[in-house]
Design a protein around this nucleic acid. Structure first.
Lengths: 191, 191
DNA sequence: TTGCTAAACGGAACACGGTTCCGTATCGTT
DNA sequence: AACGATACGGAACCGTGTTCCGTTTAGCAA
């Protein structure tokens, strides 16, 4: 539903979009996802107008940069479910990968939880793509009786996302450990 | 170590400080703790210079506004420990109050996790005051064998704080439920 | 009361980052 | 070669935080 739709793009436009994507990816790792727009434009060697034309909001840019990885994460869900001991194990592993993704992206988790109007796109994409996957895992685990069934995938992912927001490399705060606690808390109260 | 220290303050200075505190408390509830500095100054009927003289950083202002409530929370710890069934129950109740405090303060949780330089004061105060209390509760619960002992009070509080960051009134995200999960996950793996 | 000085005040000016707008340059086609 | 559509660049604008300094005022002493 996207390729052959409108008019063909001009060559320079395509080139600039690529340049911006590369520059953004670069800047994101060094300065975080909330780096100044000017920096990205500068690194890509384009003007301010150009960046806004290609990516009207910062969220669009972020989505574009991380689309591949989100896609991979989404696809990992069913696979994990098929190859793991139990649905709960699959869920745990998937969440683990989710955490990996978030903690390696300086500031992504923080922006993911922002309710700022401009980030609707970001929420929409990340959640639309991942929540169904997570839902499948959660329901499977609930169905097998391993976990309580009063918690939604969205809520769970938001919680995990929140736990992943951490000041840069603070040794005393390990998101993984807390997420592990949360996931452990998911289990049905033992008999 | 603060009362009789320096020179006495002028009457107008005291008055303005009070006015600022009141104005800030007001503005915080309606516009959140990250409301524009100008708004607060305006509401208090003072100039920009005045607000910065009394509260060099936003954190100072926040701390001043919520000092009472933080104090109350700190004092609640020992009391809960003394009056609850078990240390774990005390811990759970205390965390509950902590959550209450955070969720009713529009944006406080978010700012509490910021690693921005200017918020060092805020971290310092909140954590210095509450971590020891929480530590007492955690250690008591660990000592009674109810919870695992590989998690620190700081980490726990940060996790809870993070979970309390939520977009305004989103029905689908309930910090309390997730915190409950986290606290449940704290319990020793059942036999 | 009056005069003096340190303390405190107010708000204009500056810094910075996001966003918009429009004159100009470029692409692709005829 | 010429022309229209498309895309570009970057100056200008806006909202916020922050600083600075000329002016005002409280408190005290003569």
């Amino acid at each position: 539903m996207s390729e052959g739709a409108g008019r063909a793009k001009r060559a320079d436009a395509r080139r600039n979009e690529k340049a911006l994507l590369d520059a953004a990816a670069d800047v994101f790792v060094t300065s975080g996802v909330d780096a100044p727009v000017r920096d990205i434009a500068a690194k890509a060697g384009v003007g301010m107008g150009t960046i806004y034309r290609h990516f009207p909001t910062r969220a669009d840019l972020i989505v574009a940069v991380y689309r591949h990885q989100v896609e991979a994460l989404a696809e990992a869900g069913p696979h994990l479910l098929a190859t793991s001991e139990t649905p709960y194990a699959a869920l745990a592993k998937w969440i683990d990968r989710f955490v990996d993704f978030l903690v390696t992206k300086h500031g992504l988790a923080a922006v993911l939880q922002s309710d700022d109007a401009g980030f609707q796109t970001l929420h929409a994409y990340f959640l639309d793509r991942l929540v169904p996957v997570c839902t499948e895992l959660v329901e499977a685990a609930a169905g097998s009786g391993e976990i309580r069934s009063d918690i939604g995938a969205l809520e769970l992912m938001r919680g995990v996302g929140n736990l992943c927001v951490s000041p840069d490399n603070d040794k005393r705060y390990d998101p993984r450990r807390l997420v592990a606690l949360l996931i452990a808390g998911l289990k049905k109260p033992g008999p």
